[in-house]
């Protein structure tokens, strides 16, 4: 295992320029620093709008950092070419967002197995892992062959979690993974996070549920510290 942090952010800044609204520039983050080691879970805290999700999206390469360094493994996401980020997402960096976004018509089982197929796992092994996760997350077996697009919000969220944990990513971003889950499913998700940590995953999470956060997070980072001075 590497001794240096697996995820490392240095001096990350972000602003949005609204070209169609008079070119207004909205600074949202300045000088963000963050280190996460293998096997560690860091919880992002700060009030709503402080930039927790924005920071997470920048680590994933979904938002473009204006400046600074965002190293995940060997890749600087702030500077990497699209195909390097795609390879990073395929092999190294997983992301459980709050919303499930899938191709219509694809079965739930295939949605969950897809990240494994993308890294070259054979179909039977990928399906077996997908079934195990769907089972653990209490998605009724009769739904597995259906597309999750018609599922309830809670079911979609659990499918999203199953998909995010299918492949053992060395780094994971979790945006509210336990929100609106019942006690049993919440417990399962916390177990999945603990298992990932035990496998050495470096995890960044956003948890509104303080009990869940205290249980799985080793440290907290308050992102309000990265809020730019009001212009």
């Amino acid at each position: 295992m590497t001794t240096h942090p697996f995820i490392e952010l240095q001096g990350v800044c972000k602003s949005f320029t609204l070209h169609n609204q008079g070119g207004a520039v909205i600074p949202v983050m300045a000088g963000a620093n963050l280190c996460v080691s293998a096997g560690e879970c860091v919880g992002l805290v700060g009030e709503s709008g402080a930039g927790k999700s924005t920071l997470m999206r920048m680590i994933y390469g979904n938002y473009l950092a204006a400046s600074g360094r965002i190293r995940v493994g060997e890749v600087d996401v702030a500077r990497a070419a699209p195909r390097e980020i795609l390879a990073l997402r395929r092999h190294t960096l997983g992301y459980v967002s709050q919303f499930l976004r899938v191709v219509p018509r694809v079965s739930t089982l295939d949605v969950v197995a897809e990240p494994l197929l993308a890294v070259g796992t054979d179909l039977p092994a990928a399906r077996a892992r997908a079934e195990e996760l769907l089972e653990r997350l209490n998605i009724p077996r009769r739904l597995w062959t259906l597309s999750p697009t018609t599922f309830s919000g809670g079911e979609q969220q659990r499918v999203n979690i199953a998909r995010g944990f299918a492949h053992a990513y060395p780094a994971l971003l979790l945006d509210e993974p336990t929100a609106s889950l019942d006690a049993a499913n919440r417990e399962t998700v916390l177990h999945l996070i603990e298992e990932a940590k035990a496998h050495g995953a470096a995890i960044v999470g956003i948890f509104h549920d303080a009990t869940a956060r205290d249980r799985v997070c080793d440290r907290r980072v308050d992102v309000s510290a990265f809020t730019p001075e009001a212009a």
Partner: peptide, 21 residues
């Protein structure tokens, strides 16, 4: 140009912002 989800979720150019919105 860029990663598809990045261009659609955080468009940098005024024209792309107009397209997405």
């Amino acid at each position: 140009t860029g990663l598809t989800d990045q261009v659609l979720d955080d468009p940098q150019h005024g024209y792309t912002q107009l397209l997405v919105s």
